[in-house]
């Protein structure tokens, strides 16, 4: 892992309008609200948070599926915010997004072969025979038999569909892959093999991963650094070991205390966090976590804490951190 950032994200925001029955804009869901971080070449950066915290929007904003409303995205030293579709095409093969549910993101009426060929047709000038060679190679690398090339997505198991989803992306030799919940909905035994494959591919293709997940035990196993998100903001960013040993933000602490510890104490006996995340269209004033925070004080309603470094490696957005 080198320290050069492959991706720099600066105060990225994305608001979705809330409209009433007449179609008038009555408010905005701030799915992303001033998110800044860096991804270093070769690392795996985990993005964790509960549903609605904006982690998927972040992944989609990075690859241009949701154009960001504000802020800057710098990929390999080049500002890619607000690029035209043509300019984007040059970047797209290097910055790829892996969908959460490959069962639904693969075309049900296309064979695996056709799905795998499509990115090559769009982004490369390979001849059909070169394409086939490339497809055969990637199939072998993701651990699928060549006989599966002529199957349709519904004929594959969930784990195999994920492998096809990955193969589709990796055939372009990307530099950075955004993995959106790569193991959600999989059984543990299948999850284990997908995680092992992801690691193997990272080595083989020297990939950088942005690993979006809500499963903290998976994140702990896979990531070098972790960013914890809550209601459109990053509330803590730290190396994985540091975060799991000494989380500074009360939300990260609560999230960590919800991981079942098999053989240890029952989490249901020790867990204390009450309530549910507030409506992202109407976030509370000041610190967004204060409505659920066990340490909330009057100052939390007034000041909106920014993400600030606690140690050189760890930053948190809490006045008490």
């Amino acid at each position: 892992m080198s320290d050069a950032p492959i991706l720099q994200v600066d105060t990225l925001s994305r608001h979705f309008p809330v409209r009433n029955m007449l179609g008038w804009k009555t408010g905005a869901v701030r799915a992303l609200d001033g998110v800044s971080f860096e991804v270093r070449s070769g690392e795996t950066l985990g993005i964790v948070g509960e549903s609605g915290c904006g982690k998927s929007t972040l992944g989609k904003a990075l690859v241009g599926i949701h154009p960001p409303g504000g802020g800057r995205i710098v990929f390999e030293g080049k500002d890619i915010t607000g690029q035209s579709a043509n300019e984007r095409r040059a970047v797209a093969p290097k910055l790829q997004y892996c969908y959460q549910d490959p069962g639904n993101s693969l075309d049900p009426r296309w064979t695996v072969r056709r799905s795998l060929a499509e990115p090559l047709v769009v982004h490369t000038a390979l001849t059909p025979s070169d394409r086939n060679a490339r497809i055969a190679k990637i199939m072998q690398q993701v651990g699928l038999p060549l006989t599966h090339l002529d199957l349709y997505p519904h004929e594959l198991s969930g784990g195999q569909q994920r492998r096809v989803g990955l193969a589709r992306i990796l055939t372009l030799h990307p530099r950075l892959v955004v993995l959106d919940e790569p193991t959600s909905g999989l059984d543990v035994s299948v999850q284990a093999s997908v995680l092992m494959l992801l690691r193997e591919l990272q080595r083989a293709f020297s990939l950088t991963y942005l690993f979006i997940s809500h499963d903290l035990s998976v994140v702990r196993m896979m990531c070098d650094r972790v960013a914890v998100m809550y209601l459109g903001r990053i509330v803590e960013l730290a190396p994985t070991e540091t975060l799991f040993a000494a989380a500074k933000h009360p939300y990260s602490q609560s999230l960590l205390s919800a991981i079942p510890d098999i053989g240890g104490r029952r989490v249901t006996d020790t867990f204390t966090l009450e309530g549910e995340p507030p409506d992202p269209a109407r976030p509370p004033s000041g610190c967004r976590f204060r409505t659920r925070c066990p340490r909330a004080a009057p100052v939390c309603a007034e000041t909106d804490p920014a993400l600030r470094p606690i140690t050189p490696a760890q930053s948190a957005a809490c006045v008490f951190a």
Partner: peptide, 14 residues
């Protein structure tokens, strides 16, 4: 099945 759970300090096994 227990070995395929991601847990700290242990290697995954499929």
């Amino acid at each position: 099945l227990l070995e395929s759970l991601p847990r700290p300090g242990r290697e995954l096994r499929e």
